[in-house]
Design a binder for these strands. Structure first.
Lengths: 341, 341
DNA sequence: TATTAGCACTCGTTTCTTTTGAGTGCTAAC
DNA sequence: GTTAGCACTCAAAAGAAACGAGTGCTAATA
């Protein structure tokens, strides 16, 4: 059986209606509120076909139809209408271009949650592809050296290194120069213990003490690789009865709190990255058990070369895909532009 | 009417039973499972008295009794039995004494939540009473100076300062010495713009450029004053039917996410600080609307002079106060000891 | 051949009624 | 002062009945 234009229209009408109401849609409703001018009986025949094709399902015998995951997929892939959709509050926020990226992102997540009525998440741009810009060791007291590492985009890391013996000013200065000349401009990912070993060799360093310090620096650069995820609007899940029952809600809340499952989702969307940078996961496509009744829309934004972060919107399967996708598209571009200026 | 020993015993029995089951307690239950050897009729008479005194209430005519807030208060104030209660996992964790206080605290919150089956929150020690230990300005590139500020307990702050003109090495070095000699050992709270102005004067600095840098340093020290609160085990609220209905759960989740309401609670307990450092808020005593059906037990710990943080456990009013209070007491001492070593 | 009116049937939802049982308060006896 | 006994209350559980949205199928229609 094939999907002719009429079937498409009916399917679209069913989905549109279901997205709004959340109730199974009957043939009579479609017959009345569509410009197809067909009786409910005809619609019933067509619906029967659509069901056979696996695009819609009946929750029980005497109920209307609701879209299946396959139906949603078809809808998302071929039936979305694009609209420019800006959230003016966001525009203003981005103009201010706060100093602290972290704060800005948290704010974005919050405003997005309030405006869409879905839960949102956002990750700061990952740093591992980021280039090292500046590195400094300073003595804080006799046995402690502070390593400060600055990367492109002014991402700053600190690490306290404990040394057994006093390290004199001269050695410290030498180390600073050595490290800066050898590591500057490299991206975090390229720097590792082996590389540091090579530097040691090249510089002819044999002192155990200095070796230890260098190792600690390498550790510091690698550390903290776990990307932080901020969430907002978690309570929005209670707006949708299909997510609000105790078991489901509890599981979802846990997922949001634990975050590392969300991390998988983020990584997934960073990898798959389609041309638009927007990705839609429906139900099981999220690969997260607790989200099997949810859909997630993610957008990948770039704040500079190799510094990619992800925004996600999490809602029920019957989320307003048109609104969410186009809002995210606009926001993504706004964020991308932020760096270019 | 006055509360004689028998009435106390009966009240205690009612509360103990209710804490366990969450069901209204009837006279028959008390008669059977107490060593008072009284018939249910006698218990009924006593219960009637207790109700008149406002210590217990009846949800409806033909139901058993449940403790009122006043009843809980009496119980918490006078009937708790102390036990040493350690969570061995915590002990091990604390022994490791992780480098990163923040990570450690998050872990503590999590373990505590898993072990008690309540929601938990924890704040890092506030820094404003904390003493400045080390301060350094370094040039990252032509127009950017990085200020690194280290306080007692190795609390590190960074701030990027944008300068319009190039600042030569010599000036930078001079500034570093000036700042360190003048500010070291002072606590963050004492340092402000006025103070910096005084230093400028004393040092005879008239350059606008240097003035700006100093102001930025003062700003950096003050900034970030908002205390961060970490929560864990939010989903535990679903274990208690009296909190798990949609409206209440949604409100609570929001409170945990927004956090600033929790902040009030934290400040409150920092101020009121009783001898033990443990504080119990029952129902409305929390002063937070969404927590009117909850109780909160807080503990104030000290990681050094003036560096006080707070741990909180949030559960239903019928939480296991004995367990929670004594667990927190033990944990508090463990944390307090952590610094002394 | 495609569409539609008509109708019997299904089944979740709502509403109302009945039953059950835990628990009380009161009274009279111990 | 304590207790047995009993009538009474009321939420919750169980059952029964009515409702109605929606379907599938058949036969008539264009």
């Amino acid at each position: 059986m094939q999907l002719d234009e009429r079937k498409r229209k009916i399917l679209q009408a069913i989905i549109r209606n279901y997205l709004e109401t959340g109730e199974p849609v009957g043939s009579r409703t479609i017959s009345k509120y569509t410009d197809l001018n067909l009786s409910s009986a005809t619609i019933r025949n067509e619906m029967s076909d659509l069901e056979e094709m696996g695009l819609i399902v009946q929750p029980h015998t005497s109920a209307g139809r609701i879209p299946s995951d396959k139906g949603y997929r078809l809808y998302v892939d071929t039936m979305l209408e694009e609209k420019e959709r800006e959230i003016t509050e966001l525009k203003e926020m981005l103009l201010e271009k706060e100093e602290k990226t972290e704060q800005l992102l948290k704010q974005v997540a919050k405003v997005l949650a309030v405006n869409t009525n879905y839960a949102t998440m956002i990750t700061a741009p990952s740093t591992h592809r980021n280039k090292l810009k500046f590195l400094q060791l300073s003595r804080v007291d006799k046995h402690q050296i502070l390593a400060v590492i600055v990367a492109e985009g002014n991402v700053i890391k600190n690490s306290m290194i404990r040394v057994r013996e006093y390290l004199d000013d001269e050695t410290l200065l030498k180390l600073n120069i050595l490290l800066n000349t050898n590591l500057n401009g490299l991206c975090m990912e390229e720097i590792n213990l082996g590389m540091i070993a090579a530097i040691k060799q090249k510089a002819g360093i044999h002192s155990d003490l200095i070796g230890e310090v260098l190792d600690a620096v390498a550790e510091a650069i690698k550390a903290d690789e776990d990307l932080e995820i901020y969430t907002s609007g978690t309570n929005n899940i209670f707006r949708y009865p299909e997510l609000a029952d105790q078991q489901r809600a509890s599981d979802l809340i846990t997922t949001f709190e634990e975050k590392q499952l969300l991390g998988h989702l983020v990584e997934q969307s960073l990898e798959e990255k389609p041309e638009t940078g927007i990705q839609v996961y429906i139900g099981d496509e999220t690969r997260v058990q607790s989200m099997k009744d949810c859909s997630v829309v993610t957008a990948t934004y770039e704040l500079g070369e190799g510094m990619r972060g992800t925004i996600g919107i999490i809602g029920p399967k019957r989320m307003d895909y048109e609104k969410v996708v186009s809002t995210l598209k606009t926001l993504k571009h706004q964020l991308d532009d932020l760096y270019k200026k």
